[in-house]
Design a protein around this nucleic acid. Structure first.
Lengths: 386, 386
DNA sequence: CTGAAAGCGCTTACAG
DNA sequence: CTGAAAGCGCTTACAG
């Protein structure tokens, strides 16, 4: 029969003003460092604020200051097959973590916090017939929005960007929206050369991500070009279609194996999660990685180095991508409405780096392998490495 | 010399009213389904809304309706050692993903979205001398707050909870705050019995999480009891102190190995990330898991099944924990201010489940191991499994 | 059923 | 330097 203690109405600026014996205008001024309040006034206000534990209401502040100090982040949500706690133990295939997305969001959050902003997070369903409304509603709670890959159709995006500043991630910049991405081509090119020249693999397959993702296309394209240039055989096609999830990679390999297809010497995956699924599937089929088939990823999420063998991959500056997205958005927010104002960079691209570990066929480092990745700057011409 | 198209001021309710030829009150009514507007009125309003692309401003709505439809989520943030892009390739140890936290947040988000709420996310620094202010500021942008483990000191928590509904995660319920956690004791007990009875391991160590985390204490306690009861040797102590991160597990093992300590036959880790670090470190020392040393985790994050060997662990209903936290919070929000109202459950505890995979010494499943975990309900007495 | 008006809790010109 | 007042964009009694 325990009772909940009622929550008191938080104090308002009027309470503070009264306690301090000044006007609400003065309270507002000392709290926001506007004008030059007398020291005496400051003291009285600050004391009252401390005593009452006053913190201004966000909505009221936002309404009158016309700034919410909130940025929205929207990502695409893989629907759960609503099998509560999958009692049979077989995890639903959709029940995956989108680590890359979460890590980017961390990057955004850190930058935002530094800038005095908070993050409003929302995900939209793939079958999002009302994705637009969801995003719109969110947008009206924010000063600007960052959109992950494939959240909105181009027309929806255009409409949204008419009302609020928008930055897309791994998309393409438009008239009204900025975009932040990483230079997948250079990293993938470097990876391809490594596989073909350094390891001498004759055939390389690309286990793709979402077909409509610009990142995916750039990576494939780069791989295609490099293999062609080197005279190696490039393998892809409908059987090699993944979905950026471990299950996508696992399924593709399982099917390939089931139909007794001849597998290539190396499989370059669209991202690390896909590589994870591929490696798991190959292992349970008794195929040695990298001995029989080399496998590589893309992203360099934290678990990559903890896989066995450790995953060779192309590192994206994940944290920095998020931070950059926030910075760009923030400048758009600041400049908003200022016609003809010189815009910030509209298509920011960050460099990627090849990280050679073991799954490509490189030998393990001499000591604690986990701490001695061999990294080469994608743009450097030196061969690098220990 | 490209110019940014200026962002138009989004239309207000006045614009809609004018376009529809009605009062703003009527617009509000049809949009919120209050009263019984005539069909004619509805039509005119809806048409105007569609034409103008009107979506109500969140701040204004919040201020007057006294509901923001936002819940805050705060977690503790491991500070980055600000080494931008760690050019030497050695990832900073702190640069870890807190997958468990992110997954819980996903669970919260899904439930919140269903309830028409959005998530406001913020992290506080470990050295958070101003953690309180950060959280307070966030709280004033929300209708209620969910706090992950170890975000606020008890007094700070008490103060916060006086102004806004608060739910803690993996903490303890207080007079004014509710708590959601999982039943770590039962899952860990089951795990201990499995290691000792089924596998016959004589010595089991506990590689701990944060010393001040209730979850950590419950898990250790349960392990201690079970080993004592079975006459096995329990190993712990300062050398076995981890921090819930892979680096914590790796460091502990590295130090133990460096001083030539005799390792126990089995290491039960406080969570999966710790187990990840432990397994990586053991592998690079050439120690076979589970042949020489068995290793287990806790949480069952998605990568657990992708490790080699696949990780035996105790599954927490991660998604459900998040969803439950939201549900509890939401009911507190609804009831707020209603003195003496019968409160919802104040300390919700969800069941855990042992997931037997390979790292404990169980053999791999007959087919695609990834899809055939052997799961036993923690509370069930049947032995279950195939 | 509908409109005019008050009010939500702040910030910010505008006078003094 | 400081206070009274207007206004941010909504929702909701209150009259009609």
């Amino acid at each position: 029969m325990q009772k909940t203690p009622a929550i008191e109405q938080p104090p308002t600026i009027y309470d503070v003003a009264q306690a301090a014996g000044v006007s609400i205008a003065s309270v507002s001024r000392v709290l926001n460092s506007h004008g030059n309040p007398r020291q005496e006034t400051k003291n009285r206000v600050l004391r009252a604020v401390a005593e009452l534990g006053f913190v201004p209401d966000g909505a009221a502040r936002a309404l009158s200051a016309r700034v919410k100090e909130i940025v929205g982040v929207v990502f695409r949500h893989v629907p759960r097959a609503d099998s509560h706690e999958a009692a049979d133990g077989a995890a639903t295939e959709e029940d995956e973590s989108l680590q890359f997305t979460d890590l980017i969001n961390r990057g955004i959050e850190v930058a935002a916090q530094q800038g005095g902003f908070n993050l409003l997070i929302g995900s939209v369903d793939v079958h999002g017939h009302d994705a637009r409304r969801q995003v719109m509603t969110m947008a009206r709670k924010c000063d600007g929005v960052i959109l992950h890959d494939r959240v909105l159709e181009p027309e929806e995006l255009a409409q949204l960007s008419r009302q609020v500043p928008v930055v897309t991630l791994a998309g393409v910049a438009t008239d009204a929206t900025a975009n932040v991405r990483s230079d997948g081509r250079s990293g993938m090119g470097e990876l391809a050369r490594h596989l073909i020249h350094d390891h001498g693999y004759p055939t390389v397959a690309y286990l793709a991500g979402h077909a409509d993702s610009p990142d995916n296309l750039a990576r494939r394209q780069s791989l295609t070009e490099e293999t062609a240039r080197a005279g190696a055989t490039f393998v892809d096609g409908p059987r090699w279609q993944g979905n950026y999830l471990a299950s996508g990679g696992a399924n593709a390999v399982r099917n390939l194996l089931a139909e007794n297809a001849t597998l290539p010497r190396a499989i370059a995956c669209a991202n690390d999660q896909t590589a994870l699924g591929v490696m798991t599937q190959l292992a349970s089929a008794g195929i040695d990685v990298p001995g029989e088939i080399a496998v590589t990823g893309f992203d360099d999420i934290p678990v990559a180095r903890h896989l066995r063998p450790q995953l060779t991959t192309v590192r994206q500056p994940i944290h920095e991508l998020g931070a950059a997205a926030f910075d760009v958005l923030r400048s758009m927010i600041t400049d908003r409405g200022q016609h003809g104002h010189e815009p910030a960079e509209r298509d920011l691209v960050l460099p990627t780096v090849l990280v050679r570990r073991q799954s490509c066929g490189c030998r393990a480092g001499p000591e604690t392998a986990a701490l001695t990745d061999t990294v080469t700057m994608a743009s450097a011409d030196a061969e690098g490495g220990t």
